[in-house]
Design a protein around this nucleic acid. Structure first.
Lengths: 173, 173
DNA sequence: TTGGAAATGTTAGTGGCTAACATTCCTCAG
DNA sequence: CTGAGGAATGTTAGCCACTAACATTTCCAA
């Protein structure tokens, strides 16, 4: 069913393919589609990284400013985890990038990650208001970087993430 | 009509008030509602700040790193402009904050601002990839700060924005 | 006063999504 | 092998956001 959905999105675009069409191609009912994916957009999103990120941030030295701590935490979480299948990710992100309503749900989907980052920073001594802002900055940078990356075909995914974190940490430019 | 919409949102919540209800209370047809607001969410969003921000960023010294340039630009744009009616803004943002789909459209609505910031940074010598990321970080921080602010009742709006920019610029924490 | 544009209404339909209830499928205890 | 019970699937019907095409009213200016 996921396969059917991705095929149709690539063939006709996200907005122009209906839940019913996906269901039909998967040999199933529209109702069944919505039982698997509570929302059409859910076909294209998911983030299983949150817990690892929280851990990694907590391990950063407290002397650093919060944005740097968060960025380094994300960096080390990324290095620990197996990188996902790049081509799949790129296909999904391309669809997201070209569909405004999906960009919106992508960012909404990062609210949970933002909360995890903010909590980790707070537990390292940062005042909450600051922590929340730093988390927003980091996720903002990452989301933009991912979307931008999806529209190239040369770069590799790890490098895109690394660059984003560099901009946050070292502030080079 | 805008008044009717806000009233109903406050009374019953955003999701539970339909476009038809708003139209009815405003003594008008549902169709007319959608002619004024292409989307139900548009009742609650608008950003007239973009051009001023671009200007202000271009005036920042090029030696600074991109995040700092962007943050200082936004800061000075904010200081130049008349502050909006705080109470109105708070009401709107509260509704946005408590409605996931609206948070999503808020962030989506900042895409234009992000582009303005990125362009201004590029014209100050920053490489595009970096500029885009910095813009994402700044808007991420601002959005989060605004949403967080809307849920307090003591602080003032200018201070919330200023704090967010401080976190980005001075990296205190 | 009238001509014509701008705002509003009518009708009809699409697509996302949900609720309530019926049906089939699969598994596993007896 | 069988039958009972739960899980996955189907059916129907409906709400709401939003759009298209066309008719109607409003209102300002010549």
């Amino acid at each position: 069913m996921l396969k059917a959905a991705l095929e149709l999105f690539v063939e006709n675009g996200y907005e122009r393919t209906s839940a019913g069409q996906i269901a039909a191609r998967a040999g199933v009912t529209e109702m069944t589609f919505f039982r698997h994916f509570p929302t059409k957009a859910d076909v294209l999103v998911d983030d299983p990284y949150d817990p690892v990120i929280g851990e990694a941030i907590r391990k950063q030295p407290m002397e650093l400013d919060p944005i740097t701590r968060a960025a380094r935490g994300v960096r080390s979480a990324w290095l620990e985890l197996p990188s996902p299948a790049t081509d799949e990710v790129r296909i999904r992100l391309r669809i997201v990038a070209e569909t405004p309503s999906l960009r919106a749900s992508m960012v909404a989907g990062t609210a949970a990650t933002e909360a995890v980052i903010a909590d980790a920073l707070v537990s390292g001594g940062t005042v909450r208001r600051t922590a929340v802002i730093a988390a927003g900055a980091v996720m903002g940078a990452l989301n933009t970087a991912l979307l931008a990356w999806s529209q190239t075909d040369s770069d590799d995914l790890g490098e895109a993430i690394t660059t984003a974190l560099d901009v946050l940490e070292e502030r080079r430019g």
